[in-house]
């Protein structure tokens, strides 16, 4: 699903955020991306979401080489991914329903279909009763769940999350992670960048560790020898 082949990313000014990164995330796999601040986690996710482009090497998503994606085909590629942010990126002048409906409206679903799917997505994250509320009236954990509902509403094959639990307490964080696990159970490929080492150590999932823009040898959760980088 995700293949990084000798990928480097250099920002203008010479700062090399990623250097020679190789990894493969299989379809229906779930992995955590960890590393200290500035290790290149966000850059790696941005390369997948086509917010940034690789300086050298190629990123291949679902068989598609992102180097060859033009400005005009880019939106259609992003529709295959659900992206979740630390700061939720919700639209605060629209209701929870309208926020979650947005990806479907962009794709051109009928109003009936939109309603059905939004309800299903909100039900999955347990917020169906909040559909008419505005996001600002919800708690942080609830807002994050709204953004997850929006990310999964058009059933993307790939879910990306950048520090999804960064602003949440441990209990809420666990709830959010369980949600991601549930989506992974039904075949969605999930890649989550996170700082929350104690949490992911409880989950038996692949861990991809970045350090100064390079990949460390991989470990999985639940291992005694796991060390927190820096």
């Amino acid at each position: 699903m995700i293949l990084f082949d000798q990928v480097s990313k250099r920002y203008p000014g010479g700062n090399e955020a990623l250097s020679n990164v190789n990894f493969h995330l299989h379809p229906s796999e779930m992995a955590f991306l960890t590393g200290h601040s500035g290790a290149g986690k966000s850059t790696l996710l941005k390369l997948i979401a086509l917010i940034e482009r690789a300086s050298t090497g190629s990123v291949i998503i679902g068989g598609k080489n992102l180097n060859k994606v033009s400005h005009y085909t880019l939106p259609y590629l992003r529709r295959n991914m659900g992206i979740i942010f630390q700061d939720y990126q919700l639209l605060y002048d629209r209701t929870v329903f309208d926020n979650v409906a947005l990806p479907l409206i962009i794709s051109g679903f009928s109003s009936r279909e939109v309603k059905k799917r939004v309800h299903a997505a909100l039900d999955k994250v347990g917020l169906l009763r909040f559909e008419k509320k505005y996001p600002i009236t919800l708690s942080g954990g609830e807002q994050q769940r709204v953004s997850i509902a929006r990310a999964v509403v058009n059933k993307p094959a790939l879910l990306l999350a950048d520090e999804p639990t960064g602003n949440l307490d441990p209990d809420l964080s666990r709830e959010i992670m369980d949600l991601f696990m549930a989506f992974n159970q039904v075949g969605v490929t999930v890649l989550i960048a996170t700082h929350d080492i104690p949490l992911i150590n409880q989950l038996d999932k692949r861990i991809i560790q970045l350090s100064h823009g390079q990949l460390n040898p991989e470990k999985t959760g639940n291992t005694e020898q796991f060390t927190v980088d820096s």
Partner: peptide, 9 residues
Amino acid sequence: VMKLIGGTD
């Protein structure tokens, strides 16, 4: 946000 969730120009 629109661009991130695949809104065309």
